[in-house]
Design a protein around this nucleic acid. Structure first.
Lengths: 220, 220
DNA sequence: CGGGATCCTTGACGATACTG
DNA sequence: CAGTATCGTCAAGGATCCCG
């Protein structure tokens, strides 16, 4: 790629920050992921070899440190947080459009949902929730979210506990709800999201299903 | 390039902002350039076809508007300023290293110098300053800066007014002075920058030769 | 789990020339 | 001045497989 030939610090930052996927990797680190696989679950469409390469690069420029099996932000990395935050604000205010099918990768959606579960509001004991997506490649169609407060686990294969609650939806719809573009109650009423299971679990779903923390940033 | 498959607003911003050269084009717009050639003088190593492409893209996503021969930031574009500013801060604090030869393109350096001239402190009347760089490709070795307060003009060919003052330096040295890494007085003392001309113009040089406005950002 | 190695494609980019 | 057109390259990154 080569550099920009400029001594300007904006160019220097751009050389670090604007390679493909890098801002999203930083987002994951800023959000607290430290393990390789956790980071990758936040960028499921990124190949592992490329993620490795980016992590090495970020280490080389001093944004992260690699200790054992963990990647931790250095002070320099921590100070990228304002930039990522500003990017979130700007995207939310100016780019956010109706979510397109291309932007609703089910793997990322499920990982985001998993990260936002309100464990305090989850049913006591263990609850296995099966998500089934329409209009989605077979490999990403069916997910299990295992709530066992305070833990939350996400699997692509049946964990074998049986299913307590089934959620069916188009990933575009569920993502729209997650991002606050469609009220959950409305989607349930229109049955674009359907819940199957005991009524106390159906009623409890909206309580623990957390929305994106970026909602509400728009009005600044 | 294709997108990231994510509905996250950070990803949306990244799709706009992290293509090659884009942050620097935004910088030029934020700094006030509106004409194609002015913008390009701030990114001299970018081909005009690519600049056109980027401007079209920025127009398409609503960051700029194209009116006649001018490109102006929309409100959305104006709000990119905090991001660019943060990038400058971060680069200045964490990446800034000794300026390398690869980062000292003479065309960008001269354009930056031109933009920072303190016209109030320039000599009255017209002063033609000839910059001559060592260790630089022939085509970028020799520049003329015409001070005629309040205007400042930069040429690659002799404007034909005769030369009042000649500045000789390595572009790496001059860039280091511009960025505040080397005091100008020191460079003059060591004769890594030399000035030839009437003594009142030699003495006046440090007055109108402005340094980067990004200096001082580091201590925050 | 945390990668490394390889292959292969494609489209982004650079270079150059030309136009109204 | 403000681009357009064409062409060639080359390397980024996607895909796949493998390994300790």
């Amino acid at each position: 790629m080569a550099g920009y030939g400029q001594f300007c610090p904006i160019a220097a930052t751009a050389e670090v920050l604007t390679e493909r996927w890098t801002p999203l990797v930083i987002r994951e680190l800023v959000d607290g992921s430290r393990r390789f696989n956790d980071i990758q679950r936040g960028v499921p469409l990124m190949s592992s070899s490329l993620l490795t390469k980016r992590l090495r690069m970020l280490e080389a420029v001093g944004v992260i440190e690699h200790q054992g099996n963990e990647y931790v932000l250095t002070p320099a990395g921590e100070e990228l947080r304002p930039i990522v935050d500003q990017m979130a604000v700007w995207g939310e205010r100016w780019i956010r459009r109706t979510i397109r099918r291309d932007d609703a990768d089910a793997a990322y959606l499920m990982w985001a949902i998993r990260s936002s579960v309100v464990t305090d509001a989850a049913p006591p004991g263990r609850t296995t929730v099966n998500f089934r997506f329409t209009a989605t490649p077979r490999a990403k169609r069916c997910w299990w979210l295992v709530l066992e407060p305070p833990a939350t686990d996400l699997c692509l294969t049946d964990p074998g506990y049986g299913t307590d609650l089934t959620v069916r939806s188009d990933p575009v719809i569920l993502a729209s709800v997650y991002m606050g573009d469609i009220p959950l109650a409305e989607a349930l009423r229109h049955r674009t999201i359907t819940l199957d299971g005991p009524s106390h679990l159906v009623r409890g779903f909206p309580k623990w299903f957390g929305l994106s923390s970026l909602i509400g940033i728009r009005q600044s």
